[in-house]
C-alpha cells in the first residue's frame, strides 16, 4: 500500500487507463499546460501529449458536445469540469444527448464518456459555486452517477467509470483533492453501484456519500463515546443506488439517518427514506431522519455557511432522535 492524495488517485486512474487504451483522452479547461485547475492532471500533458490531453476554451456546452459526439464515434473522452456548477451550461449535452443517445438510436450509438469535476461547497464561494448535483443527475435514466469519498474509492471507481460503456457523472470535491489515503501499489477496480459499509455498528445506520462522509465518521466517533454504536454506509454511487446494502443494515439497526450536503427536496435522502418505508417498513423502530443543507441558496458569510451546512452536532442530534434520546 502507499499513501496518496485524492487528486493523485484520480490521476493514477486516468493515466493507467490512458496507457491501456488509446481511445481514452482528457479534455477540459486548464487540464493540459496549466496541469489542471486543481492539479488533478499534473504531468499528463507531458506523458500523453496535446492530442490526448486537451485544453479547451471556456465553452462548457461546446466542448461537452464535442466530447459527446466523439464518444458516439469510437472515442472514450474524460471531460473535466472545473466545477459542476459550470457544467450547468453543458447540461443539455449531458442530459439531452449523452444520457439518451443509446435509447433514441434504438441501440445503434452509445456514449462511453466520463464527466468529472468538483461538486458541492468549497468554502466561501457564494451561491453559484457551491451546489451539489447528485440528485439532479441521479434523476436521469441513462446516466450513472458516482460519488467517491476517499482516494481508494476514487481511483477504483474512476477506472471503472472510464471502462464503462455508459455515460458516467463523477462527482468530486475541491475540498477533497488534498485528502490523503492508502491505495494498493497495483491496479484495482471498484464496481459502480456497490455501497460500502465503512464502519460496522448495531444501534443506528448513517447513510451518506461523498465529501460529507467525514461528518458521518466524526459524528459516529462522538456517539461511540456516549455508548451509541453507529453503522456507516457509503453509497459510493447514487445511480444506481445499492438499496440492498442499506436495507440489510436497517434490518440489523432498525434506525436510519441519511446525511447529504445538498438541499432536502427531491434529494438522495428523500429517495432513501422512501425506499426504507416501502421495503423495510416492519424493520423501522423510528422514522428515517435526514440531515441536509438548509433549503436556501448557499451564502458567503461564514456565519451563514455554518448555519447552512450539515455538521457533527446536527447528525448526532438526528441519530439520537431515532433512539428517542434527547
Amino acid at each position: 500500500m502507499k499513501t496518496v492524495q485524492f487528486r493523485e488517485a484520480l490521476r493514477e486512474a486516468m493515466t493507467e487507463e490512458m496507457r491501456l487504451d488509446q481511445s481514452v483522452l482528457l479534455m477540459g479547461e486548464e487540464v493540459a499546460e496549466y496541469n489542471g485547475a486543481y492539479k488533478v492532471s499534473q504531468g499528463m500533458l507531458d506523458e500523453f501529449g496535446p492530442k490526448r490531453v486537451i485544453d479547451t476554451p471556456i465553452a462548457e456546452l461546446g466542448f461537452t458536445g464535442i466530447a459527446v459526439g466523439a464518444s458516439m464515434n469510437g472515442l472514450r473522452p474524460i471531460v473535466e469540469f472545473m466545477t459542476w456548477n459550470f457544467a450547468i451550461l453543458a447540461a443539455d449535452q449531458i442530459i439531452n444527448s449523452a444520457a439518451k443517445m443509446l435509447q433514441m438510436s434504438g441501440g445503434q450509438f452509445h456514449c462511453p464518456i466520463v464527466f468529472r469535476g468538483g461538486n458541492g461547497t468549497a468554502g466561501q464561494l457564494g451561491a453559484t459555486h457551491s451546489q451539489s448535483f447528485e440528485s439532479m443527475y441521479a434523476h436521469v435514466p441513462g446516466l450513472k452517477v458516482v460519488t467517491p469519498s476517499n482516494p481508494y474509492d476514487a481511483k477504483g471507481l474512476l477506472k471503472s467509470a472510464i471502462r464503462d460503456n455508459d455515460p458516467v457523472v463523477f462527482l468530486e470535491s475541491e475540498k477533497m483533492y488534498g485528502d490523503k489515503g492508502e491505495i494498493p501499489e497495483g491496479e484495482y477496480l471498484i464496481p459502480i453501484g456497490v455501497a460500502d459499509v465503512k464502519q460496522k455498528g448495531t444501534d443506528v445506520t448513517i447513510v451518506s456519500f461523498g465529501k460529507v462522509m467525514k461528518v458521518a465518521f466524526e459524528a459516529a466517533a462522538e456517539l461511540a463515546k456516549e455508548g451509541i454504536s453507529v453503522e456507516v454506509i457509503d453509497l459510493r454511487s447514487v445511480r444506481p443506488i445499492d438499496y440492498t446494502t442499506v436495507v440489510e443494515s436497517i434490518k440489523k439497526t432498525n434506525r436510519c439517518v441519511v446525511l447529504e450536503e445538498s438541499w432536502p427536496l427531491a434529494s438522495i435522502s428523500s429517495e432513501i427514506a422512501y425506499h426504507l418505508q416501502r421495503y423495510a417498513f416492519d424493520h423501522l423502530d423510528a422514522p428515517v431522519m435526514r440531515v441536509t443543507q438548509t433549503d436556501t441558496p448557499f451564502a458567503f458569510s461564514p456565519t451563514l455557511i455554518d448555519e447552512a451546512l450539515p455538521n457533527v452536532g446536527r447528525v448526532m442530534e438526528a441519530v439520537k432522535s431515532t433512539l428517542y434520546r434527547g
Binding site: V68, G69, N73, L75
Partner: peptide, 12 residues
C-alpha cells in the same frame, strides 16, 4: 446540439 456533437464526430 447537433452542431457540437457533429464536430465531436469529426474530432474522432
Amino acid at each position: 446540439a447537433q452542431i457540437a456533437m457533429g464536430a465531436g464526430v469529426g474530432f474522432a
